[in-house]
């Protein structure tokens, strides 16, 4: 395929993915908006006012970056896992497999679809947070880079889940039993300073800790971890996930027997 043909094919997948989540916006865009608004009301306004400052900021200012990032992570993941598994389940993944598109175009098409939903939900949640607090961006580039990388990484994680899933139950296992606990224990609602040295050490193994803190640094300028180290970790995770996704597309018996 020529470069132009590849670009058209890539845009076709992206457009299809974006249309899919926009068509079912009541399942994809509205729930995170409602859930996060409840978080802002309960943890930010009602309980947060009694907690006091954290890391030099009001509690709601402290939790907003983590909640935005949580939305980006879960929605990027959910978009790709449900879309790609749905395509496998209804067998219309064959439309793509018989076409002349390369594996990298297919993968990037789904990644960008996941990133589009993740960023759109992140934007919605950020705008909603402005009804409850003020946000000052400390470092725009750090914020953009970390949110984009995170979204790409979790889109690929969703892709891997979709390839291995045998049923719709398998699609929800990772978000419920892995993603949510890691996010909650990744410093969204508290600072690492509040934990004992042992649990601080354990938390270092949680990739969400680096993601949430790097994003918090971009907005508030404070972080429990070194931001450079956080970027290095996320880049390594992303590169490994990309290599694995490409391997699956080329070799997985779950796609081509």
């Amino acid at each position: 395929m020529s470069f132009n043909e590849k670009w058209i094919a890539f845009l076709t997948i992206v457009r299809k993915e974006v249309r899919r989540f926009m068509r079912i916006w009541m399942q994809t865009l509205l729930p995170p908006a409602i859930t996060m608004t409840l978080y802002f009301v309960i943890f930010g306004t009602l309980i947060g006012s009694r907690i006091g400052d954290m890391g030099g900021f009001s509690y709601i200012q402290f939790v907003v970056p983590g909640l935005v990032m949580m939305s980006v992570v879960t929605n990027s993941y959910a978009n790709v896992v449900s879309s790609f598994y749905g395509a496998k389940f209804q067998r219309f993944i064959e439309e793509i497999l018989v076409s002349p598109m390369s594996n990298s175009i297919v993968l990037w098409g789904y990644i960008v679809g996941g990133v589009a939903r993740g960023l759109l939900v992140g934007l919605i949640v950020t705008l909603l947070s402005l009804f409850f607090t003020e946000l000052h961006i400390h470092n725009l580039w750090v914020m953009i880079a970390i949110v984009a990388l995170t979204s790409v990484f979790f889109s690929m994680a969703g892709f891997i889940n979709a390839v291995f899933a045998n049923s719709f139950d398998d699609v929800s296992i990772v978000p419920v039993f892995v993603l949510t606990p890691l996010t909650y224990l990744g410093g969204v609602f508290y600072s690492m300073d509040m934990l004992s040295p042992f649990w601080q050490g354990v938390s270092q193994l949680n990739p969400m800790l680096y993601i949430v803190n790097a994003f918090r640094y971009g907005i508030l300028g404070v972080s429990d971890v070194n931001v450079g180290w956080a970027f290095a970790m996320i880049l390594c995770f992303t590169a490994a996930a990309y290599a694995y996704c490409m391997y699956l597309l080329a070799n997985s018996k779950r796609l081509r027997q």
Binding site: M1, I8, A9, R91, E95
Partner: peptide
């Protein structure tokens, strides 16, 4: 082997896109 939720137009139009048709 097509998406049950997409329109006929989208299904055929997307396939053309996968082959790089302008």
């Amino acid at each position: 082997n097509f998406s049950n939720f997409e329109s006929l137009w989208d299904i055929v139009r997307n396939q053309a896109g996968y082959y790089g048709l302008p």
